[in-house]
Design a binder for these strands. Sequence first.
DNA 1: TATGAATGAGAATTCATTCAT
DNA 2: TATGAATGAATTCTCATTCAT
Lengths: 216, 216, 216, 216
Amino acid sequence: MARDPNPAGEERLRDADRSQSTILAAARDEFAEHGLGGARVDRIAERAGLNKRLIYYYFEDKEKLFQAVLEHAYRDIRTEELKLRLLELDPATAVRRLMEFTWNYYLAHPEFITLLNSANLHKARHLDESETARALNSPVIETLAGVLERGRREGVFRGGVDPVHLYVSIAGLAYFYLSNSYTLSAIFGRDLLAPRARAERLSHMTDVILGYLSRS
Amino acid sequence: MARDPNPAGEERLRDADRSQSTILAAARDEFAEHGLGGARVDRIAERAGLNKRLIYYYFEDKEKLFQAVLEHAYRDIRTEELKLRLLELDPATAVRRLMEFTWNYYLAHPEFITLLNSANLHKARHLDESETARALNSPVIETLAGVLERGRREGVFRGGVDPVHLYVSIAGLAYFYLSNSYTLSAIFGRDLLAPRARAERLSHMTDVILGYLSRS
Amino acid sequence: MARDPNPAGEERLRDADRSQSTILAAARDEFAEHGLGGARVDRIAERAGLNKRLIYYYFEDKEKLFQAVLEHAYRDIRTEELKLRLLELDPATAVRRLMEFTWNYYLAHPEFITLLNSANLHKARHLDESETARALNSPVIETLAGVLERGRREGVFRGGVDPVHLYVSIAGLAYFYLSNSYTLSAIFGRDLLAPRARAERLSHMTDVILGYLSRS
Amino acid sequence: MARDPNPAGEERLRDADRSQSTILAAARDEFAEHGLGGARVDRIAERAGLNKRLIYYYFEDKEKLFQAVLEHAYRDIRTEELKLRLLELDPATAVRRLMEFTWNYYLAHPEFITLLNSANLHKARHLDESETARALNSPVIETLAGVLERGRREGVFRGGVDPVHLYVSIAGLAYFYLSNSYTLSAIFGRDLLAPRARAERLSHMTDVILGYLSRS
DNA sequence: TATGAATGAGAATTCATTCAT
DNA sequence: TATGAATGAATTCTCATTCAT
């Protein structure tokens, strides 16, 4: 029952859109901070500076709101990914570029990580119901496949690399470090989020992936 | 006096221990399934088949119970890790062995992953307060450092590898894949948990790490 | 000025009338289905296909809307009753005719029953405030008094029958059966609304009243 | 999930039972006064002088509470009905006795009427789910059948009278008058609940039914 | 050690109603 | 006349926690 904004009445329409965006941003922050179970609709309303009732008016309930937040989060990262133009770079640079992007995106959008964790805790049922999910079937995989293929043809990359697995590995090397930085820091007794540590991580990650891919 | 008191003190103690273990197991499952925020004390009592009041009797409150669960989870994996005896193997085999162990442990203990995610969502404050946390400072790092050093000396591994980063990478390659399998499956439209896919993942992971470490 | 004003004043009025009627019909159905307490203004607007705000524009609030619905319901049944022309029939036929009418009207207008029940739950305060209520002081009572008197004079009816009580009895025999058909069906384990059962009921009702009224 | 009170611990048990009864009585009054839709759980708790949470503890939700109230109401009237011992009286007296009982019971228990109205507004779904409902299949019907049969054999009652219809008629003559007394009073401009009017009603009702049944 | 009863403070959601245009 | 946006006050229900025994 999403509002369908119809043309007439520009002013009002803009308000409706703005309200929805404000709610989405507030919800994203709240969900990111507390997870789906720990998030409070009251707090979302407060953060948004809007009446709680309005949240239900536009998003029906907490679950649907979470779904909307999730879809937006995906849309956002995909949009950025598309700007990378990896195919215009030489294979090694392209992979490096993708890793930097991934790393920096996660750093700049820590909420993305916690949102995904929440989504997975709930077995991604918020994506199942979402038509958008399918559409998100990231074209980055195809791009990456292209990069790998070219690297292999040019003799710089090994062959037989599954682009999905590689993509997951790149993401995983960054994601896990950041997602679990608190427990890891506690256990290893060193602050993994210190600037120096962060730089080292990106460097290590890149070494791992390029070390693996490179044909001596 | 209407009470019918249990016999010997020892048996009573054993009962008490058993109750605590039962509660911990029930709590672990509940926290794993719903996260800290979504877990319900009532459900934990139900799962344990014990009165809710007992939970408070033994663990004070929900937070402390979570902390206890978390500590146990760490203790369990560390205990298993210690059995690996990596230093008795040649470096490449040792790394391979560690990866297999990590992968299989996560697969066998999916609750470990969600527990850690919950702990991180709460910025690991449950570990900060825990004296146990320090003690968990994994000796596996030192072991891994030994393996790497030997590999370097024997000329099979590259030098300059930080064992902590390597450990995190190994964990991350496995963890992220499993932790995010629901969203990844939804997005890539393939079931990442199918037996075949799982075997492929371990193989890929190993290739990545050994490919990176190996000196031509 | 972005408004596109409807043409002639007359049409506008007709629109206004139509809107009011539409709202009244929707409200009648909603109140009948859910009672005053269970009725939802939102649903009334939906049923009417009109903006909720219009309901307040025309009827002030939910209570006043209910009152309007109730008055209409009374007006409707009274209008029909007046068409019966009972005085033109012989006494027994007149009574029979009244019973048939009552029975069939309740059957055709089940909402009338639930509306009255709601009104009574609220101690008929919606009628007290209504000037119309007085006007509804059913002329059917006088008519019925006439019928009874003539029957007595003609020696076919017993004397001493209070027309109000008789009227209430006729209504009650029909009303209770229909109003409580769900609980009665559940308890007696037979469907009181099946066509056959309905026919039997009218027959029984008529027997009771005419059996009572008839002399010898 | 109704509490099942087990033997041990008499004191506590009694408290639990008392709490449940208190809640039921408070709920009965609230539902009777406002209907299911208009009843407020808060008010029930207040009336009962007990914590609102306890209502949910014992009755799960508002609907189930209503169902429990309804079952109790039926049980109560059936219990009284069974004490009538109609078969020990001569047929006309038995019928008269039943009518008096019905009339007086409704007068003494006005909540019974509004509860039934609420139940019917909701299409008796609260009885459908109730196993008790079946058991309530009033034995009064069989008793009434016996009375009618004996009356016929003794030549004082007409034959061919369906006891269910007769029962419904007796109930209806009383029920409708009381259930709708507010609207009827408003419309006829006379107070139907005044003592005098009440006495007249019982007298009229009895005349109708016995007049109908009597063989000249 | 163990447990059923009880509670206060929320939490999500609903609802009649009003605003602004 | 008509409508989408917005709101405050409930309302049902939940939850961690404590009481009393």
